[in-house]
């Protein structure tokens, strides 16, 4: 069954169609990548799926239920989690606390219990902290746990963001350029991590510029250009598709066509 189902999704900004009529689906344990040249609408697509933007047209369904245009925190409650291309880390908190916030839905409770430090509140906080430490170990950040998040390197912050997203035990995980700005070693680590998460049954939707990585780990690729889906299929098919090659090699091919 597909956990994430996108139907005819579209949005316009001031009359410009940023994304138009895009449909695809992601099944449990599957890694689907969205690729396309800069400005093709990949991040806009992500923002519509994750509730940051209200789609102008089309629908999003999570585990078969319609969730189009739902606020991000409600989507999170339904098992959708994401990371951001331009990092959204809580700079004012420690690395551990960043990871702990991923457990918010599990650790939250009555405010009064939190204000008066009641045993229930302490227990919830402690459990979330243990979970967060385990996740930091999984992404190789356990030794940085008590450092301020702002002091980490870019690659480490990327991993921290993934750890925070995983803390939510999502059914669907949206990763927006998780390897951007990372060196080869870091990219490979993230690569393994994504494959591992998918193997545990999470549906993963990925936007990534690193083509080697995309070709290596994706089960299915969706290609966007000028906001429209121009191709989709297995990595091998897509990389041979003439439209895709034209979109990537630039305008000359387009001029020759038209």
């Amino acid at each position: 069954m597909s956990l994430l189902e996108i139907q005819g999704l579209g949005i316009s900004f001031g009359g410009v169609r940023a994304v138009n009529d895009v449909s695809f689906s992601v099944k449990q344990g599957e890694i689907v990548s969205v690729i396309g040249p800069n400005g093709a609408g990949k991040t806009t697509l992500f923002n519509m799926i994750s509730g940051v933007y209200q789609p102008g047209a089309g629908s999003v369904a999570l585990s078969g239920e319609p969730v189009t245009g739902m606020e991000p925190f409600r989507l999170a409650q339904r098992g959708l989690s994401r990371t951001f291309q331009n990092l959204q880390i809580f700079q004012n908190m420690t690395v551990l606390e960043n990871a702990v916030t991923g457990f918010h839905l599990q650790e939250r409770g009555p405010v009064l219990a939190d204000l008066f430090n009641l045993p229930g509140s302490r227990r919830r906080a402690r459990q979330a902290e243990e979970g967060a430490r385990a996740l930091l170990a999984r992404v190789g950040l356990e030794r940085a746990a008590d450092r301020e998040a702002g002091s980490l390197s870019y690659g480490s912050l990327k991993r921290l963001e993934i750890a925070r997203a995983l803390a939510m035990q999502p059914k669907v995980l949206l990763l927006d350029e998780p390897a951007a700005g990372c060196n080869a070693v870091e990219t490979e680590e993230i690569d393994h991590l994504i494959a591992e998460v998918a193997a545990s049954g999470v549906a993963i939707l990925l936007v990534e510029h690193d083509m080697k990585m995309v070709m290596r780990i994706s089960n299915h690729i969706v290609v966007l250009d000028h906001g429209e889906k121009i191709a989709e299929g297995a990595p091998a098919e897509v990389s041979r598709n003439p439209d895709v090659i034209a979109a990537y090699l630039g305008t000359e091919a387009e001029h020759a066509d038209g």
Partner: peptide, 9 residues
């Protein structure tokens, strides 16, 4: 934005 995505209302 990030607070919303981890489910914080």
């Amino acid at each position: 934005v990030a607070a919303g995505t981890v489910g914080i209302d």
